[in-house]
Amino acid sequence: MNDPDRLEQPWRLWASVAILSVFAFSVLFGFVLMPVMQGRAAGIDAFEAICRALGITPGSPAARQPTTNAKAQPATRVAWSADLLNSLTKATAAGESLAGSCAGCHGRDGRAVEVKLYPDLAGQSAAAIYKQLHDFKTGSRPSALMTPMVQALTEEQMVAVSAHFAAFPVRPIPAAQLPAAGAAIEGLVARGDSGRGMPACNACHGDQSGGPTEAPRLSRQSREYLAAQLRAFKTGERRNDIYSRMRSVAAPLTESEIDGLALFYASTRTY
């Protein structure tokens, strides 16, 4: 019954033939037929197309692209490197001594002395603080009070003071409750508005959002400051966000949505 010369299962032979022919077809199709037929449409001859498909000759070389003659005016001059992001996580003594000159407005512990006039820095992400300081300094975000404050700061000092303020705990929610912002506003925060092509605010703002590095924490910032910044983005008065990330979101907001969003973030600790 067990004939050693005979395959135990005859289908093994057919299976091997099937696999080999699929393989042969793929090679023929992927390296010969497809490139030749596609190359014809792009004006590439058959031999060249096969060589390209096999990787023997390179594809169309990268042509040097003409750039604009206008001088580049980047929205910001900040470039995030791994070293920079690393250094922003370390609070240092240098940061503490520099922070003294900020205390008059932003408070010793990063809680603004007058929230209607100055933003809180406590608990803000260090990357966000650093980005704004850098932009105040280079003029990407002009500000009557802040631009002169940061002129004398070096790169290392900006990093140090950012790390210093980021380490403080956020201001607690005030005892007097603010009114609720309403379901429409919470919808904008959590889901955005696809009718207007607006991503949710918390796609970018929030500790674990996975959005842009420099997106600041918004919760517990004052209503007045948040609303003022949203209006400035909407009108284009503030334009230091890389590739219009924030301007493109603020542009379609209505005045009452701006007030509602400012109220929402001023009265929540979640984001």
Binding site: G59, Q65, A72, P74, A75, A79
Partner: peptide, 20 residues
């Protein structure tokens, strides 16, 4: 073809600054 560009400094100059 393969063409490389530094993503960290894309906005600072060259072909992909906002003005271009």
């Amino acid at each position: 073809n393969i063409e490389r560009i530094d993503p960290k400094t894309l906005h600072l100059g060259g072909e992909f600054t906002e003005a271009n």
